[in-house]
Amino acid sequence: MATILIVEDEIPINELIKRSLQLVGHRCISVFDGKAAITEIERQTYDLILLDVMLPELDGFQVLETIRNIPTIFLTARSSLSDRVKGLTMGADDYLTKPFEMLELLARVDAVLRRTLKDSHCYQLDNIRIDLDSRQIFDNGQLVECTPQEFELLNVLIKNRNIALSREKLLQLAWGYAYEGDTRTVDVHIQKLRKKLRLEERIKTVYKLGYRLEV
């Protein structure tokens, strides 16, 4: 989907971010210090940069000064307000504090990319095409009738593909915080989606956890 540069000197965290982003189909390049980041930015174009603040050679703020027209999300272990304000006023698009959850990282990356990437918001899954703008689903070019709630659930699954989502999380993401329904509602809708779109093999039930759309 997008090409993302990860600038983070802690190898385990760098690797973790890379793996998380690759799950939803992003292409990732890892660098471990500020100088390498600048060389990498000059070498090719990126859709997004995830930038740690404390880096060897050049720190995140210095790297940010050289970046032009590339959306940037700051990563930092410092959560003080002044640090956050500094990052945002310098032109960062968002700010992520360690420790963070995978879903939070993906949501923020998705939000920034949605603002900046102007490509067609379509997703192809086997012979099913999902148009995210017109909120329509096509099976081999044939429009498939589905309720807004079913579409929203599929949208959430696609956005977080390859990641297991608990029923509670799905309720929260697809129905909203205000919805006070039973988690059984999720099961019912999942069954409908599987049947309508022949996704029995794609939407997996994860034991004791929830569902995962595997791609």
Binding site: L16, A77, P99, L209, R212
Partner: peptide, 17 residues
């Protein structure tokens, strides 16, 4: 820093295929 990794990888094992 270590907490980010510990939590992250545990989450990764739990949720990713």
């Amino acid at each position: 820093t270590p907490l980010t990794s510990i939590y992250g990888y545990a989450e990764y094992i739990q949720k990713a295929p």
